[in-house]
Design a protein around this nucleic acid. Structure first.
Lengths: 222, 222
DNA sequence: TAAATAGTGTCTCTAAGACACTATCAT
DNA sequence: ATGATAGTGTCTTAGAGACACTATTTA
């Protein structure tokens, strides 16, 4: 038996938090199929390129940023998902701090941040509605048992900023006092920088950076 | 730009519990590359076949059983992973009750259940050592927050059998009394059949079947 | 001053873990 | 009878959630 050959792509669900809302980076397609529709950024995997490397390349092309959390999400290969022919896409999930340029890209058509609620109401290209839904679900779950909430924050941040991330991703209000106690008492989650932030009214908040711990135990409950 | 084409396969990490040990189904390769090495069962995705359908087909071919829990695990596509040429494999995880035939298969070479500890010490074909490790890790995590432990059990089972599954997968002893209270008090996890099992010495145990709940909250802690 | 955010302390309730105790079988 | 497994109750402790209270800033 000879192996059937297929096109392999990577698609990216790049999430960030902008003014208290969870947003996803979408591009408008300038060529068929699905010309004019919004789509997740992505592209073909090169013949000698690793899957993660392909995703990193696309991420750099779209956001111009490196050092962003990137992980494989899932693979979608329904035979009819691309009218041009059999295409299997390995979707990845990226979590970017708001610092990430609101748009950028050289070859990408207009790239834009869209609140996920609006993005899910759009008629996205291919099966990108399913991929987006799965990516958001994964992000929501990850905040519970990993320290990845900090991946949405700049290198130094306050507990208040981190809480806003959690509230945006989960779409729920959290008690600021219990949240504070919880994250500061979890060893290895946050490291004090010694500095304080005082841009807001109110008592200046201590600045933290990400600690070494990846898995949170016990988890932050929703 | 024209799309580079690649071979796409599915590989299966099929786990079961046999006499208190977590075991994986492996086949011995009869053809190069890696002739004579043990490997995960798998094969090419057909031109018009969905990924999950391909995994289901391979699973039937290997175990002869349907109605087994099957989910996508991750996708592995390092450029050098198959010496025959660029091949991307979508790995799947299956959890089988011990009822599953110890071996079977028509075209598969000798298929055998091997304890995962031994399998991980073997020199598996391709990158199957990595895939196996990821599959076992996923299974261990899933037992905590999902009701999938029951996927290793026959349709009707006792709390004691379910506990043996947890102990085998996690490689830890659990307190029978606390475990019993935990699983029977979680609404929707187990449903009483009304019957009892009395094959063992000791007080007859109630028989249960899987309940409708998929996510366990709170989780069963390791 | 008031308003706003940061951070601590305290109470209640739930659930995990340890383990004594009872129940019902095989031998 | 003994030994084994099933199942319940009870105690202690950790942590979640609610929320009163203090601390430190801007306007």
């Amino acid at each position: 038996m000879t192996a059937p050959l297929m096109a392999v792509t990577v698609d990216l669900v790049i999430l960030t938090v902008r003014s208290g809302e969870l947003c996803v980076l979408l591009v408008r397609r300038g060529v068929p199929p699905f010309r004019g529709h919004l789509a997740l950024p992505g592209g073909y995997v090169l013949p000698d390129e690793d899957l993660l490397a392909a995703a990193e390349r696309e991420l750099r092309e779209e956001t111009g940023l490196g050092d962003i959390h990137l992980e494989q999400l899932a693979t979608y290969g329904h035979p009819g998902r691309d009218p041009r022919g059999r295409t299997v896409t390995v979707a990845h999930l990226a979590l970017a701090p708001h610092a990430g340029a609101p748009t950028a890209g050289t070859d990408a058509a207009e790239a834009q941040w869209l609140p996920v609620a609006e993005a899910m109401a759009e008629d996205l290209a291919f099966d990108h509605d399913v991929i987006l839904r799965d990516g958001v679900e994964r992000a929501r779950a990850k905040l519970e048992y990993s320290s990845l909430g900090a991946a949405f924050c700049p290198p130094e941040f306050t507990v208040g900023q981190l809480r806003e991330v959690y509230e945006a991703v989960w779409g729920e209000r959290l008690d600021p006092r219990n949240f504070h106690r919880k994250v500061t008492k979890t060893p290895g989650f946050l490291e004090e920088t010694g500095a304080t932030s005082n841009t807001e009214p109110g008592r200046p908040a201590k600045l933290y950076r990400r600690g070494p711990v990846e898995q949170l135990n016990p988890p932050i409950t929703r």
